[in-house]
Each structure stands twice: as structure tokens, then as C-alpha cells.
């Protein structure tokens, strides 16, 4: 299968196989009108199988969310057809409207307009807790 190489844009590589679509949705890539490729189950020496996303546009969006969904991804920045930067994504310290609090007693269950905010409370174990009620994210 051939996917054209991109000129200016990003390649999200080393996505755990099967998580590509989740990342595609979370980054709202469906809303772009530039070429976007989601390639699933690519052979990988390191990972066995992996997903890759290529976006052929000079995008600037918050990619910290990737650190929450799949901490091992790398983001390659391409300029004029050349790899100019390889980013490792760190765990975000705060997640806003990425996941929802499941605690039925949480204020977010009754106040619909509140943003669902989670903060990183334990980086080693990747534990996020609701800002309001401190319930652990599932």
C-alpha cells in the first residue's frame, strides 16, 4: 500500500495498533480538509504492529492529549519534505474535556456547562483525578 509522502505536516508514529482511530477522533482530524491518512496495523520491528497518522498540512494543535491516550507515540514534523523535528510526547498535567467524570456525586453530573478537568496526580502510575471530586479517571 502506498501513501504519498508529505511535504509540510506531521506524522504521528508508533501509535499502539488499534488506537489510531481514537487519536484521529480526539484531534478532530475529521474536520480537516487537507489530506489525512490513518494507516492501521503497519508492520513494526519494535512494536510488531502499529498505527500511523499522516497529516499533510502545517498544523498547530495541542498534542499533549496524545500523551494521555498513548504515551509512546512520536510526532515527526515535516518541512519541505524533510524531517525537521522528532517530538516525544509527555504526559499532560491537565486534561480538559477529554474524559468525563464517572462519579455520580460529582458536580459535573448536574452542571452540564462545566468543563471536565482532570489533573495528573501520579505521573509514575499515570493517575488522573477529577479536579472537582478527585475521583480517579478510568
Amino acid at each position: 500500500m502506498n501513501i504519498d509522502s508529505i511535504k509540510n505536516g506531521i506524522v504521528i508514529d508508533h501509535i499502539t495498533a488499534g488506537r489510531g482511530m481514537e487519536i484521529y477522533r480526539l484531534l478532530h482530524l475529521d474536520e480537516l480538509d487537507c489530506p489525512v491518512a490513518l494507516i492501521k496495523n503497519v508492520q513494526s520491528r519494535k512494536m510488531g504492529k502499529k498505527d500511523i497518522i499522516k497529516v499533510d498540512a502545517d498544523l498547530h494543535f495541542d498534542m499533549t492529549i496524545l500523551g494521555y491516550v498513548d504515551p509512546d507515540v512520536t510526532v515527526n514534523v515535516i518541512r519541505d519534505g524533510n524531517l525537521v523535528e522528532k517530538k516525544r510526547i509527555e504526559l499532560p498535567t491537565r486534561l480538559v474535556d477529554v474524559i468525563r467524570c464517572k462519579n455520580p456525586r460529582c458536580i459535573t453530573t448536574t452542571e452540564q456547562e462545566l468543563p471536565h478537568i482532570f489533573k495528573l496526580t501520579n505521573p509514575e502510575q499515570r493517575v488522573y483525578r477529577c479536579l472537582y471530586c478527585e475521583t480517579k479517571a478510568e
Binding site: R105, I107, Y132, C133, E134
Partner: peptide, 10 residues
């Protein structure tokens, strides 16, 4: 005082 957790923070 509020029955919903996090209401005073809000």
C-alpha cells in the same frame, strides 16, 4: 455545603 462533590470549588 452542597451534596455534589466539587461544588464549593466551582
Amino acid at each position: 455545603r452542597h451534596p455534589k462533590e466539587g461544588a464549593p470549588l466551582v
